[in-house]
């Protein structure tokens, strides 16, 4: 049942895809997003080393947030669930709350199974502005996620169509080293999501090999990459910790 103590504990890197399924995603955008799990699965099927070290899950959000695929070994998943749109608004707070609970619960379960759980990677894809209610709700949920997760995930925001670049930039974590991907000016949301899929697939595989979250930025054509600047406090001698 449990891995023998004489074997070194395998490190697992959990990945969560958090995808906007509000009404605006309906159509080609969602169709493209619905291929992500399949593409990751195909890549992992060709790479047993990486496959053994990553787990993938998916969460969706519109007005509320749901688990679409619980964290699992994609190679043992026979059918991939499909994302479906919901027409009840766009809120980020439920997604952050569900993510926080999920990351923590999954970590404890995998640790109980005998694995060492690495810091998770989260790809957060949105095509529009959040209209949380009351105002400030998503900011608070996000701050709680960062504060209360024992292992805070890397959060890689992916902004397409009418998402708010300022908000999406604020979600990149840890800020100075994690990129934000924004749809390029001349690209369509679908091609941006397709490019994103390639980045996610390569990142998941590379992360499996390196046993930590590594974002593969080698082919970014329908997206622009934004790196948040490191803070001035790190270079200011008048700032003391």
């Amino acid at each position: 049942m449990y891995p023998a103590d004489t074997h070194p504990r395998t490190t697992l890197i959990p990945f969560y895809l958090v995808v906007d399924v509000s009404q605006s995603m309906d159509g080609p955008r969602l169709d493209t997003a619905n291929l992500i799990l399949q593409r990751i699965g195909e890549a992992l099927a060709r790479d047993s080393v990486a496959a053994a070290r990553v787990r993938v899950g998916m969460i969706d959000f519109a007005g509320g947030s749901r688990t679409v695929l619980p964290l699992c070994d994609l190679l043992t998943t026979t059918t991939f669930p499909q994302l479906a749109c919901r027409d009840d608004g766009t809120r980020y707070a439920p997604a952050f709350n569900l993510l926080r609970a999920t990351v923590d619960r999954d970590r404890r379960q995998l640790a109980a199974d005998g694995f060492t759980v690495g810091r998770p990677g989260v790809f957060f894809l949105s095509d529009g502005e959040p209209f949380d209610d009351p105002p400030g709700a998503w900011e608070e949920a996000f701050a709680t996620l960062l504060r209360e997760c024992p292992t805070t995930p890397h959060i890689i925001p992916c902004a397409v169509a009418d998402s708010n670049p300022e908000i999406m930039r604020a979600l990149a974590h840890p800020a100075p080293t994690t990129p934000l991907f924004i749809q390029s000016r001349l690209a369509s949301p679908e091609s941006a999501i397709r490019n994103l899929t390639e980045i996610i697939v390569r990142s998941v595989v590379t992360s499996g090999h390196q046993e930590m979250v590594v974002i593969d930025e080698t082919d970014v054509h329908a997206l622009d990459t934004v790196i948040v600047d490191p803070p001035e406090s790190w270079i200011d001698p008048d700032v003391r910790y």
Partner: peptide, 16 residues
């Protein structure tokens, strides 16, 4: 600080 004040938006980003 001087370069930052003259930097404007990131050259590879959608200007915010």
């Amino acid at each position: 600080r001087y370069l930052r004040s003259g930097a404007g938006s990131h050259p590879r980003t959608l200007p915010l």
